[in-house]
Amino acid sequence: MKRFMIATAMTLSMSTAAFAATDAEIASIQQYMPDANVAAWSDADVAAAMNVISGNESRSTIVSQLNALYGAPTATSPAMITEEEKASLDQYVTGVDYSKLPQATVDAALAASTSEMSASDREARVTAILTGDATPMGSEGNTATAAEVATINAYAPSIDVSSLTDAEVNTAMNVIYSEENRDDVASRLESLFN
């Protein structure tokens, strides 16, 4: 009888240990990835995500890293923006729904707003980034939108986006969405296209 009870206890304990994310871990991860089904993740996935979250990175960097690890495209993740950042951008363009913009677009606008360009150039750049629609610019080399052109130029102003092919525009946008550091993005874009 003892053997039977021990075997039953072992079987029960082994059957529930496969996916053991705690409620606190699920809540922590879903702060950064609200649509993630964390309860179905393996222990290793949960541990890796918690390591990313516990780092000293910015919220946008954590979101990017988690999305890179778990397959959700950063481009479709809503932007995470503080009230201070929103106020800074609202002095250029008001009425923008930042939750509908990808993080890289908001980051590009923030970078442009603090750049050393003249005030009128800063305003034009931020406005182009935040209000650029999905209408192709009409260049012969690619179908880049105004927002894509502004985003790429916010990271690497010397790149003539109109001379890039569609594949190169896609590569540039993937670099922007995948890199963690603004300087890394700029240097990688410069090395690829200059």
Rank of each mutant, 00 (worst) to 15 (best):
L66Y: 00
T8M: 14
I53P: 06
V38N: 02
P73I: 09
G71R: 12
A20P: 15
S115L: 08
E140C: 09
Q30N: 12
A36E: 06
A156G: 11
T135N: 13
E25Y: 02
G71A: 10
L89H: 05
R188I: 12
L66E: 00
Y92F: 15
M137R: 15
E180F: 07
T145V: 05
Y98H: 08
A49L: 00
N56Y: 08
T165M: 02
I159W: 03
E140N: 13
E83P: 10
I129Y: 00
A146S: 13
N153I: 03
D90T: 11
W41G: 01
R59S: 04
M33K: 14
V46L: 01
V149Q: 10
D45H: 08
N142P: 02
S120F: 15
T94A: 14
T151Q: 02
T11M: 12
Q103S: 06
R125K: 15
I62C: 00
A128D: 10
R125H: 15
S139H: 11
G71N: 05
N194L: 11
A112D: 09
P136D: 12
V161A: 07
A17V: 13
V161T: 08
R182I: 14
A18K: 13
S54Y: 08
E57R: 13
P102W: 02
V52C: 00
S64L: 09
A119H: 09
M5V: 15
D121M: 10
T171W: 02
T131N: 07
I152C: 03
E190Q: 14
N153S: 11
D121G: 04
I62F: 01
V38F: 01
A36Q: 07
K86C: 05
D23E: 12
V169H: 00
A75P: 07
A128Y: 05
S77H: 05
I176W: 04
E123L: 11
A9V: 14
E148V: 02
T131Q: 09
A154W: 01
A72Y: 12
S54I: 00
M80C: 02
